[in-house]
Design a protein around this nucleic acid. Structure first.
Lengths: 128, 128
DNA sequence: ATCGACATTTACGTAAAAGTCAATGCGTAC
DNA sequence: GTACGCATTGACTTTTACGTAAATGTCGAT
């Protein structure tokens, strides 16, 4: 099949603006084809967009996302480069693990607050 | 005891600048005491800073953090407010859970890349 | 009294990630 | 053939979360 996606199809699917997708293209993250001036997105672009948005939700900057995409594409050939890349991976991993811990702590606290709300509601509700 | 912390003590402990702490004060997130023009931070401020920074790592904006802090302080008294608050909590919770999933997926992919790196290093290493 | 370290305020600057607006093109349904 | 809707480009604007510079204050040690 090799389907093409138009820009608005993708904006609808992912809930982003055309500006955003063009911005990602300008930043070199995706490379939709062109027929005349119109962009045609392939499955691979669509998949990349998914990864980009996931990175964005996590809080990665555009350049970090670019770096990550690069990593998938081509593990560099030279040993020094490889070691450096693994070091960076380690750092990112630590960061993500910290972030996950932060999220879990926050989720717990939110549960507490929610419970307090429920109790309060019950108290008030009684008198209604 | 009721220890006081100076601003630089806290900047060192948390790895942030004085500008940042003053900014948080301007934003009404913390309320250090004053003796003359100098700020003196209490344990409660220190604890708040911890929460603020955790929120920041998670990706909450200042106003979201402010909102959260507010929630801890005073679960509102009126039923409608309470329900609204719980709705917002639900939304945030969903967001955080999505974020956690994103992180987990990313961690897995990073493991893959890392493994690929190791294999590659081994291949190269053989010829060294 | 002066020096250094730390503190303060005010004000302007900045980078990231888009939003918004205006002008224009291209295809097609009527 | 023209009006309409979707696309495009480029320029300008906005928001967030601080950074940074300048000019000054405070205080203990020398």
């Amino acid at each position: 099949m090799d389907k093409y996606y138009t820009i608005t199809e993708l904006t609808r699917e992912f809930g982003v603006s055309t500006r955003t997708l063009r911005f990602y293209e300008d930043e070199g993250l995706i490379h939709p084809e062109r027929r005349g001036r119109t962009r045609f997105f392939r499955a691979t672009d669509r998949h990349l967009i998914k990864e980009i948005l996931r990175g964005r939700r996590i809080g990665f900057s555009i350049s970090e996302i670019r770096e990550i995409i690069q990593m998938y594409k081509e593990p560099p050939g030279e040993a020094g480069q490889l070691r450096l890349m693994m070091k960076r991976l380690e750092d990112k991993r630590a960061e993500l693990i910290q972030k996950r811990r932060d999220i879990e702590e926050t989720l717990e606290e939110m549960s507490n607050v929610e419970e307090a709300c429920l109790t309060r509601l019950a108290e008030i509700g009684v008198g209604t």
